[in-house]
Amino acid sequence: MTMSKLDDDEAREFHVETKFQQYAKRPGGIPRDTAIVNAQSTVAALKPNFETWVDDEMARLLKVIPAEGPDLDTKAWMDTADLHCQRLADVSATMGYEFVSYVANNLCLMFEAVRRGADYRRDVMICHLDALALGRKDKFSRMKPEDVPDLTEGLRRVLESPKLKAKRNGP
């Protein structure tokens, strides 16, 4: 580590070569293309578990969404539902379930809009839950949003409904 002083005595800048940097530059590493192919193989080995995992996450999501009634107004359930949707969105795309990831991300956007003051729309929620269930079916599981443009556009329009849209990017 070497250090040098800046003009401003209150700030200093110095060079650090971390162990990561020292080691990473050693010869004998795995070239990028090979490393990516290797990683895709190791990720593919997780796929049998993934289908169980995604079913569990969807079941947990459905469980926390209240039916019509007083629980609906508390919004407390929404944080848990949002967590499950984020997990689905974060993992599914990497595992090749891009449509599931898209729908789950839409739900995250909806929760964010509601947190910013938009009205909770149960019809929007139900619509997306149906799309999630569809995305989990074998026929749709490998599809990307662009492979089902009508469905994707329909979900987008529902999400962009005036009351939600106004709050999506609000303060």
Binding site: A11, R12, E13, V16, A24, D90
Partner: peptide, 24 residues
């Protein structure tokens, strides 16, 4: 979501583009 390519590229970036540290 993270892809193998995006993670690899950022590790390469950190390894080969060291930045000075600032202590203020």
């Amino acid at each position: 979501p993270v892809s193998p390519a995006s993670l690899y590229d950022r590790l390469v970036w950190i390894a080969f583009n060291p930045r000075k540290f600032i202590d203020s």
